[in-house]
Design a protein around this nucleic acid. Structure first.
Lengths: 225, 225
DNA sequence: TTTGAAGTTTAGGTTACTCTAAAAAAATAT
DNA sequence: ATATTTTTTTAGAGTAACCTAAACTTCAAA
């Protein structure tokens, strides 16, 4: 019996699949060429080329001018990469003491290391974590991914309480902004006041009172408590 | 003050430098195109192309038809890659419980991950190891590499004792051969007899007597005790 | 329903790396 | 010293990924 595990997909292909996966989560329908190009900081023509190729390999369903959707195979491949990315992030933070705003770029590289065995051992070594340092769920070995009841902090009403469970865009500057205020995954927040004019909020975190813009509130996920 | 750490060299360039470094260790003079081609399992013409390019980038000194030597810059780059490779091997064996014959291929990929910070933290996490699982010395942060008094087991004379400190070629089959006989780094061996005809040896390891061919003995490094 | 703008694809070119085949240089044997 | 073999380089071409510019669809406003 032969179990040939060879290089399946190129670095570039994996990155496209990952991006398409993320865009599918937001825009419910087909993902457009332009959206992919923007997210990947490349040109639409390059994207066109690549999705044709991904189509031929049965990783996406693609009709010209109509955008793409991942096939089952494509989605699984994307999830495998995302699993690796998030596990490495946990490793970097938990074992190597990186800050949560320092790990994304490194994990972008590590996520393309091939070995299945490596990932399964890493997963065990980390104690099968369910969430990465930004609160995003980690697909398990069967690529099943937890869905949690979360909503944006900006959706909370006055005097509601919540626990911070994640961030929307993990931009480094934003993560540092949170760090400075000691806001992280698990932090309890209380909405003291909401400015109806611009949607900005006054929140209580531990014994501190912070004034945050709507844009900030739209970037933090909470679970209502 | 700006410290711009950008992608210095391509995966392919790094692999060439590493190979040239290893070949320089063996053949004392210039390294030939053909030797590089053979070691890298590629064609001499590809090598010619690449060393011209490495020459232009001041990573090797290259005179046509005369082979190459690494420049200081080239050697440092090679050592940086080797440092990463060996540290990752330690990680895989010590933390993820891989066997010493399972780590080479994975480390071949991991060695190209960029971040200096990552390596410095990994190094600290592993306790600044001096040797990798095969007994090869790990260059330190300043790229200094330990030299140890080692010689091939085949060079020992009858009735001499030694401690196994490394292997010459870490071929997987060979490593498994050693595993089966419980021979590893630190194992004490005693040369009971040498067959003058073919150089094969009878050795004592713990309470076991093994008969090994000259080829095997030429692949094991020992320190005489 | 046309028409212009926006979005998408195609055509053709660039770069990095690889290859085969042929030419050139160096080493070796006669 | 010349001929033959080996080694090395060059020439020319292929592939993957990217780009610009031009052509083609689609969509939406007039």
């Amino acid at each position: 019996m032969y179990l040939c595990v060879m290089k399946q997909y190129s670095l570039s292909e994996e990155n496209y699949l990952k991006t398409i996966f993320h865009l599918e989560q937001i825009a419910d329908g087909n993902v457009s060429t332009n959206d992919i190009a923007e997210k990947m900081e490349t040109k639409a023509s390059s994207v066109s080329d690549m999705i044709r190729k991904l189509g031929e390999k049965n990783l996406v369903d693609y009709i010209k001018y109509q955008g793409v959707t991942l096939t089952d195979r494509g989605r699984k491949t994307a999830l495998r990469v995302i699993r690796k990315h998030r596990l490495w992030e946990v490793f970097l933070v938990e074992k190597l003491d990186f800050q949560w705003d320092e790990v994304h770029e490194i994990a972008e590289e590590l996520e393309h290391i091939e070995s299945e065995e490596l990932i399964s051992r890493l997963d065990a070594y980390l104690g099968h974590p369910e969430f990465d340092p930004h609160g995003d769920p980690i697909p398990d070995a069967n690529l099943r991914i937890a869905k949690i009841e979360k909503r944006l902090l900006s959706e909370l009403r006055i005097h509601q309480r919540g626990i911070c469970v994640g961030v929307h865009e993990s931009d480094n500057d934003f993560l540092q902004y949170l760090d400075k205020r000691q806001i992280g995954i698990g932090t309890k927040v209380f909405v003291e006041d909401i400015e109806t004019f611009d949607g900005s909020m006054t929140i209580l975190v531990d014994d501190n009172r912070y004034f945050i813009s709507k844009k900030i509130a739209e970037n933090i996920y909470v679970q209502i408590t």
